[in-house]
Computed example of a mutant assay.
Amino acid sequence: MQRAALAAIAWLLTGTASLPDPTIDHVTAEAVPLDPNDPAHVQVGSLRYLSGWVLNSRNPRFGGYSALHVKGNVFAALADTGEYLGFHMAALGAIEDVRFGRLPDYPGRTGAKSDRDSESLAVDPATGRMWVGFEQYNAIYRFAPGFAKAEASARPAAMAEWPSNEGPESLARLSDGRFITIQEGKQDAPEPHPALLFPKDPTAPDSAPIAFSYRPPENYAPTDAAQLPDGRLVVLNRHFRLSDGMWAAVTVFDPKDIKPGQTVPSTLLAEIRPPLTIDNMEGLSVTQEGGRTILWLISDDNQNGIQKTLLMKFALEEK
């Protein structure tokens, strides 16, 4: 018997008057060009636009995505509400096996959204363990694969003075087991943004970090980071202002250049501004396809009707 029929029977047995909405957990993907005025325009800086979609769902838990992890055709998007979305993309734009869920643990206990303000995500590809950075509490949690359970947590002393709503927006696990987190801060901050390099799991009590700083492009704030296959760290930066809209910038730096107390040098790879398709880009993941390095970006729509949840796919093509 089909799952839809089973669901209908179960609903009737409960005595409920109406059937469940069979589309409530669906996610649709509508393809969008990079340049609405010129579909042939696909190159921006060192990034080549491959595909992109506006994602939508009737599920009230959908949206607000601040972090992204992609492995093959499996996607995990983490919202700043402690909710997450998982799905498979069998073909470009074909979304299947949708799953909505909530993190099993988070720093606060008041019931407010700020208790579970999950902003960043890092994954160990070997074990599947997942680390989440929380603003408001400036905390990092480690979860079992699939967010099955919380295994450890920490509120690192080096992050204690970070602003409550501008904290660990970026969290990346390096291939050698070290971790980097960058404070979001303000997009017009005159000083570089504080950052930390942890020698190992940041939830370990003896994981004492090296403090350094990162300077984003002017009028930007860092929102996510991930390691490239060559070892460098790629950083997603966001500009969001009512007067001139939303922009995104992608930069790169080498962790080998990190020195205690100093600003790491970085290079601008691309800047995306209107009229190009863009929104409040906050999540970044790196994959490889046929020898090409792929950058996936996702936007935080703040769960309002004005913004969009964009999922964008770029190939990194440096000269």
Rank of each mutant, 00 (worst) to 15 (best):
M1E: 13
R3K: 13
A7I: 07
A10W: 00
W11C: 11
L12P: 00
L12D: 14
L12R: 15
T14A: 13
T23Q: 14
H26M: 10
A31W: 05
V32S: 08
V32C: 06
P33I: 10
L34H: 10
L34F: 11
D35L: 03
H41F: 11
V42H: 11
V42T: 15
G45T: 06
S46V: 07
S51Y: 00
G52H: 07
W53T: 03
W53V: 12
V54G: 02
L55D: 11
S57G: 04
R58V: 10
N59G: 07
R61T: 12
Y65R: 02
A67E: 07
A67W: 05
V70E: 02
V70T: 02
V74D: 14
A77P: 00
E83N: 15
L85P: 07
H88R: 14
H88N: 15
G93T: 09
G93H: 09
A94I: 10
E96K: 14
D97N: 15
V98Y: 06
V98M: 04
R102A: 12
L103R: 06
P104G: 11
G111N: 09
K113H: 00
E119N: 03
D124Y: 01
P125L: 05
A126K: 15
T127H: 00
W131S: 06
Q136W: 10
A144D: 15
A144C: 12
G146Q: 11
A148Y: 07
A148N: 08
A150W: 00
A152K: 04
A154K: 01
R155M: 12
R155K: 15
W162A: 11
P163S: 08
S164P: 02
G167N: 08
P168A: 01
E169C: 06
S170G: 11
A172P: 09
A172F: 03
A172N: 11
I180P: 04
Q187A: 11
A189F: 04
P190T: 04
P190V: 02
P190H: 07
P192K: 01
P192V: 04
P194S: 14
F198N: 12
K200H: 14
D206T: 07
D206A: 09
A211I: 10
F212N: 09
R215T: 09
P217K: 10
Y220E: 06
Y220F: 15
A225E: 08
A225M: 06
Q227A: 15
P229S: 07
L233H: 07
V234G: 01
N237H: 12
H239A: 09
H239D: 05
F240N: 14
F240M: 14
F240G: 10
L242Y: 11
S243T: 15
W247C: 03
A248V: 09
V252G: 00
V252F: 07
F253S: 02
D257V: 00
I258Y: 13
P260R: 12
P260N: 03
T263F: 08
T263R: 04
V264H: 06
V264I: 14
P265D: 08
P265T: 03
T267Q: 13
L268E: 14
A270E: 10
A270W: 03
R273P: 00
L276D: 06
T277H: 07
T287Q: 14
E289G: 01
E289S: 12
G290V: 01
G291N: 11
R292N: 12
T293S: 08
L297T: 10
I298E: 08
I298Y: 05
G305N: 13
L310D: 12
M312R: 05
M312T: 06
F314Q: 00
A315D: 05
L316Y: 03
E318L: 13
E318V: 11
